[in-house]
Structure formats: C-alpha cells, structure tokens
Design a protein around this nucleic acid. Sequence first.
DNA 1: ATTTATGCAAAACTTTTGCATGGGA
DNA 2: TCCCATGCAAAAGTTTTGCATAAAT
Lengths: 147, 147
Amino acid sequence: MTAASPHIQSLKRAGYRLTQARLTVLRVLEDERGHITSADVLAQVERVNPAIGRASVFRTLELFTQLGIIRPTYISSVTPTYVLMRDGHHHHVVCTACKRFFEFDDCGLEALTNNLQATLGVSISGHLLEFYGICADCGAPDAEGQT
Amino acid sequence: MTAASPHIQSLKRAGYRLTQARLTVLRVLEDERGHITSADVLAQVERVNPAIGRASVFRTLELFTQLGIIRPTYISSVTPTYVLMRDGHHHHVVCTACKRFFEFDDCGLEALTNNLQATLGVSISGHLLEFYGICADCGAPDAEGQT
DNA sequence: ATTTATGCAAAACTTTTGCATGGGA
DNA sequence: TCCCATGCAAAAGTTTTGCATAAAT
C-alpha cells in the first residue's frame, strides 16, 4: 500500500489524491518504459481497467505533465508521445525515418543548467534533450546528404 | 527573385517547389522568430493571404518538419508550438508557470553528438534542447504564493 | 463527513482526405 | 508542357466540457 514510485510521492506531496485512474495511468506509462502515445495510453488503460473513462486519462496526463512526471513530445503524427521524466530529465535520439528512438543517460548538462540558472535567474527543474537523425538500419543508401 | 532563406534552399534542394503557400508559411514562421503554434500559423497565413487553404498550411508544416526546418513541441495546450531549427538545432528554457521561453545559443553538445554518432551508428542532423523551470518573475523569492 | 476526482457522452477542436484545377519549373 | 501542389469542404480523429455520483482522505 505504500507508494513505490517516486512519482506517486510528488503526486501526494502536491496534495493530489492517489486514485485508481492515476495509479493505472502511471503503471501503463512505466510499463511502456517511458515512450507511449496518448492513444496507446488510452488503449492500455481501457484494457487494464475498462471502468476508467477516457476523460480521466487525459486529465491525468495533463496533471502528470504539470507535475513534471511526464513530458509530451512529437515523435510523429498528431498524437503526442509521452516520455517519463526520471529525475526530471530525459534524453534520446529519434530516427526521423523509422521513428525508433534510442535513450541514453549521460547528457553532461549539469554545467549548462547551473549556468542558465545563474544567467537567467530561472530555477530549472528538468530538461528534455532530443537528437534527430537517421539510424544505422535506415542508413542513407543514396548519396544525397553528405555531412 | 532568389530565395534568401537557407531554408528555401533545402526545400528546393530536396526537389520541392517553392509555392506561395510554402513561402508564406515560412515567412510567418520567421516573422514570429521561431516560436508559434499551429493555430497562430493558420491565423497569420489567413491574414496575410486568405487565398491559401488550411490544408496547405498543415501540409507545409509537415513538410518543413520532415525537412528539419521546424520542430513541433508542446509548450502548452493541445496545439503544437513550432520552433525554427536554425542550423538544425534549437535550445530554450520554458517557464512552466507563465509559458514564456528564453532562447540561448551555446549548448556545448558537439562532443555528445559525435559520441552518439559513433556509439549508436546514427547520423545526427540536429537536436532540440528544452529546459523546464520557473522564471525570475514567476518564482517568488518568498516561498508561497504571489501577492 | 468532506471534497476531490470520476465516468459518461456529447461538444469542441484540430488535422486530414479526395479530387478537380491551378501554378511552378 | 508536365506534374506537383493547391483549395475546398467534409470526414476523421483527438481532447475537453458539464454534472451527478463515487471514492479518497
């Protein structure tokens, strides 16, 4: 009954109730290891617990975004892809051809973060770093874009 | 009538035609200095040239995204905010409270980019770096609320 | 016992098609 | 001239309300 996820902690710390809808959405997000479209969250939640309404899923996604638990990004299509912000940050490389992504941990942005906080007077809580490119599998066979 | 913007160059280099719709959308994007929602692009284009249809605006935004000229991101709301990718990259800090953003140029990600290309075998063409935080105006030096 | 959060289903929007026609190269 | 790209308007989706009720704390 104790909240295992640190995300649940921030939820309660912010004064929100831990409901079935929120717990289910969080589990779906964590099961997908942090990359999932809103449409898929909707589908998974319905599969796991059909009693949960779509509206609650969207309301939860918005709440989680506000709390910095997740971040919507556009990998492809209209539907946003949500990434889990572990420790407030997330980094990946997206193949613009096949839309696959490759996460990586070390971003070395601590210095820049501190620098920006000092320079702009902003209190930074997290970041998203997204690289775009063509993965090895999609690799350019044509000779057009030489870098 | 030569294309001044380097973005127009990449458009033509990729074999696409320089049409009124595309030129107008690009101008709107550049006028807004690189941060504008799809809804605002739509509105601005209609204002500048009512003859251009909504569908073409969306088709153009998608094309520009594919070409790496712009990148959709979620600053707030359902509507994506498009950022201009000058030289393929873009960096900013977003205040999660007032949604204002602060661009900055130096990201120091060259080493990481090379490292990722070598490690993952990906050919990287650009990146988006987004910091989240509370700006000086929104962040009360005093703990609680405003007022 | 209090409120907050939910579910439902329709309403509100945003984005996408299909196709004949106009406009670039 | 030859096609690509457009415009139109309806269709297809996705996300958001409003409100009575359920359920966390």
